[in-house]
């Protein structure tokens, strides 16, 4: 599973990466994390409000920092 954190290094992106790593850890996922900071690429995923979360090239969340539990709910069905 490849997880991408979209954002240009604002505090929200750091927080999003933190909760996502926590959630992935709780689920025991073997996930690879990447940061996407290029604005063209970010917009290409359809994100207009950073931060954004992309799992295996699918945009699953944008515009806010979710809780660890919310990310866990998003990641769990995508894990298999």
């Amino acid at each position: 599973m490849i997880i991408k954190i979209l954002g240009s290094g604002c505090a929200n992106c750091v927080n999003l990466e933190r909760v996502t790593r926590e959630a992935a850890g709780e689920l025991g996922l073997d996930a690879q994390f990447e940061k996407v900071t290029d604005y063209g690429a970010i917009a290409g995923y359809g994100v207009m409000r950073t931060p954004g979360l992309v799992v295996d090239e699918q945009l699953v969340l944008s515009g806010r920092v979710p809780t660890t539990a919310q990310v866990r709910d998003i990641l769990a069905p995508l894990a298999s």
Binding site: G40, Y45, Q58, L59, R64
Partner: peptide, 26 residues
């Protein structure tokens, strides 16, 4: 590059599925 950007993927409406608790929390 702005005009050349291809908007891919589905659009996630960032606030569509929020509950009242989520909104108050935000």
């Amino acid at each position: 590059f702005v005009f050349e950007t291809r908007l891919g993927g589905q659009v996630v409406d960032s606030t569509a599925s929020l509950t009242w608790d989520d909104r108050i929390q935000m």
